[in-house]
Simulated assay, not measured.
Amino acid sequence: MKTQHTADLISKGARAAGKWVYVDSEGEKQTRLFATTEEAIQNEADIIRGAREEADILWRLNRSALSSEGGEVHAIHQKGEISYLYRQGIYHVRVEASRSLPIFWGDLVVKIGRVSQSGIYE
């Protein structure tokens, strides 16, 4: 359960931080997701932090809760940093944890992977 909560927290936090809503020249409301603060500055966007940068911070702060149970944990952001996901307004993260469970004849390695995807849908 912690694995899914961590994945959800990262994807929703990253989306919220990198989301920029603006009105285009035709008066239409547009929304865009920026990966980095530098990219947002180049486009004169007003955001908190880039989505990828926020995801890194959230992962660093929450990784210890998963690794405290033993085993390895890691996150795969944006399916290996596929850039078109940002253009579509999607933040995708997969959190994987593996744990070794002792059983009668040895150890059994159990892998748990959870995915969370947050998008800008309007």
Rank of each mutant, 00 (worst) to 15 (best):
A55H: 03
Q117Y: 04
A35Q: 04
W105N: 14
Y86R: 12
Q117K: 15
D107C: 03
G50W: 00
Q30G: 00
I82W: 09
K12N: 08
G106S: 11
E96S: 15
D56G: 05
E81C: 07
D56H: 05
S100A: 11
W105F: 14
A17L: 00
H92W: 15
V23G: 01
I10E: 07
G119S: 13
E28I: 04
E44I: 06
I48G: 06
I82R: 14
G18R: 03
H77C: 06
D46R: 02
T36C: 00
G18T: 08
A55I: 08
T6A: 10
D8I: 06
R99C: 07
Q30D: 02
A75F: 03
A65W: 07
E72I: 01
S83K: 15
N62Y: 01
A35D: 02
E28M: 10
L58P: 06
V110R: 14
Y84I: 11
A75E: 03
V115Y: 15
E38F: 12
R32C: 10
E39W: 06
D107H: 13
Q78Y: 05
E26Y: 02
P102T: 11
G89A: 05
G89M: 00
A7D: 13
L33S: 03
Q78N: 12
P102L: 08
P102R: 14
A40V: 07
A16D: 14
E122S: 14
D8Y: 04
Q88V: 06
H74Q: 05
A17H: 02
L9P: 02
V110L: 13
L61A: 03
V21A: 10
E96K: 15
D46M: 06
S98F: 05
V109Y: 09
G50F: 01
I76L: 12
M1G: 15
E122Y: 12
T37L: 03
E122H: 08
D107L: 08
A7G: 13
G119F: 04
W20C: 04
L9R: 14
T37I: 04
E122V: 09
E26P: 01
